[in-house]
Design a binder for these strands. Structure first.
Lengths: 338, 338
DNA sequence: CTGAAAGCGCTTACAG
DNA sequence: CTGAAAGCGCTTACAG
């Protein structure tokens, strides 16, 4: 089943069928109807390879996700992001090619993405400063949108949340509730969002005239177990509050606090980041910064597609989506109080 | 940069370059070396679209994941599966196209997969009996491998674990420890693994001469919150043990048990399924059935690629990977005892 | 072992 | 508005 079959069936040329398929305006309405009817009846789907070869565009988007730290990918963050990306692709009639960036295959992956001609553009979720893929993309001028800002590359289009401001707000909330010995558990500090959230933590402390003490931050890995181990270290310094860089780490921290015989929020107030589904069902329910992960994925695709269509401005677009501090019980605020 | 450039650079014809790229044996060693050198130096990557159009094969595999129940995708099961699939694709030099099966777009997705000519084969993780995609794949004779058996389609190639036997083993373990009022929390019973695990639960009870009581199974949705709500219902029947169809549901159940002022395993023994990373860090650590999710993804790709290469037997291959009952504290067994 | 040539199934100037 | 034709970049019989 191919274009010429459809052409024969509808009594027009291949060219015309192609125009109908591609919504070219230059087709008489009656003819268009006739062809569309045949298209529907035959359930015709144009061959993607031929199409892409002829037109130089594939309607395929690449999605690249880092898994350098393998367990990281388990964090619900990525499924949510993928879901947003996928939904937007469905809605926009794009299809998605997935690369999990394993270090051993990185060079091969970069080659495939850049030179195979298979991809119209890419969404990357990198988080590492100086990602070699970013440099390659830039050099090759392949359109892409990053989920998460890339401070090393100022001209890059991205979607992000204000990690610094959000973290600062979370910590200010703890300060407002009277906490003074506030510690933090961060993700790997080589990752930009981790560093940004720590920055926000620090800013809040310093704005309140409190010292930023290095021993009050423990660098972890975004996992529950990592949070657990980090909290055990922190306990030695007797914090009265902890800001965790993710809900998963907060969950681990909660366990360590329990095991130490301390209460949340009585002895230690706890705030997370993400507002994952489980956060509301922790004991006590977790106060946390809600970020719209799925929507970030969706918006990244939207932005990328606009860019591919020339519908977006020429200037790099950098979109910051809003977060929200969701106050529950683990921070010790009375209900309703913020 | 294309084949003819490489041909010119190495002083041979396009045909020969193509043969080198495709490892055809019919090339003189010296010539092969010369071409390979140019290939390396130029970092040449053949155009996938042209290649696929000419050869009728793309080295692209489709991966289809159901998200009918949207929150389901959050379960760490899918990231692990994807990771296995992706790693195997990297190793086998395939690339992966991802479809999250949203009901609204299902017909479109099926059309794309079947007729776009873009995919050499597909890995599906369906779990639904009578999946329309499966029927379409079969009819179109597009090679595929399922992760999870498909009892409605006996000739399908699949990778699975023995869900019935594993569940039975878990429940027998509880019986051996003296529990008699054993309840279960299942995933959606329209999903084959959910039903299989319930079957195993039932088999174990009946083999022990105990009645299978409908009110002792609550159907849930594989989420932590679902497990929590299910457990609250179950508590009315005063079970002394619960077999949960996933670790996430076990985690929710544990919370409900706590809140009811009961102890684990003293009042209620608890066993999960999956052995997710967090299972070992629950309080108490969760006894659970470990299944090799990542390996299932890897094996599915391996099997599919063998099939595409004609390296596999003609008979449908149906591979069952082993599980393991990981005994920790939540079931009430003394350490080391099983 | 190697090259010239046909062909894969589309899109898109170009001419009308 | 429509069709004939060239061309996208490969692979693969075919002939030698």
């Amino acid at each position: 089943m191919n274009l010429v079959t459809i052409a024969r069936l509808s009594g027009v040329s291949r060219s015309t069928v192609s125009r109908v398929i591609n919504n070219s305006p230059n087709v008489r309405p009656e003819v268009r109807e006739r062809v569309l009817k045949v298209l529907r009846e035959t359930n015709f789907q144009p061959n993607v390879a031929a199409r892409s070869l002829a037109a130089g565009s594939t309607h395929i988007l690449g999605l690249v996700i880092p898994t350098g730290v393998s367990h990281l990918f388990i964090d619900p963050y990525f499924p949510l992001l993928i879901q947003g990306v996928s939904a937007a692709c469905n809605a926009k009639d794009y299809t998605i090619m997935l690369w999990l960036d394993e270090p051993e295959y990185e060079r091969r992956m970069i080659r495939q993405i850049l030179h195979s001609g298979l991809i119209d553009g890419v969404v990357i979720s990198s988080f590492q400063a100086n990602d070699p893929l970013v440099a390659a993309l830039l050099e090759r001028k392949l359109p892409f949108v990053a989920v998460g800002r890339l401070p090393e590359y100022p001209g890059v289009w991205f979607i992000d949340v204000d990690n610094i401001g959000s973290a600062r707000q979370a910590v200010e909330h703890l300060l407002r509730l009277g906490r003074r010995r506030i510690a933090t558990i961060t993700g790997p500090l080589t990752m930009i969002p981790s560093a940004d959230r720590q920055r926000g933590y620090r800013d809040a402390l310093e704005a309140a005239g409190l010292a930023f003490l290095p021993e009050w931050t423990v660098e972890s890995d975004y996992t529950q177990q990592g949070g657990y181990l980090a909290m055990q270290k922190l306990l030695a310094h007797r914090p009265d509050a902890v800001f965790a860089g993710s809900d998963a780490m907060a969950q681990g921290a909660a366990l360590a606090i329990d095991e130490a015989g301390l209460s949340i929020p009585g002895d230690v107030a706890l705030v997370g980041f993400d507002d994952m589904p489980f956060a509301a069902h922790m004991q006590p329910p977790l106060t946390t910064v809600r970020q719209p992960i799925e929507r970030m994925g969706w918006s990244a695709v939207e932005l990328l597609v606009d860019r591919l269509n020339g519908a977006a401005s020429d200037q790099p677009q950098q979109i910051i989506l809003p977060t929200e501090l969701v106050v529950r019980e683990s921070c010790g605020a009375a209900a309703g109080e913020t």
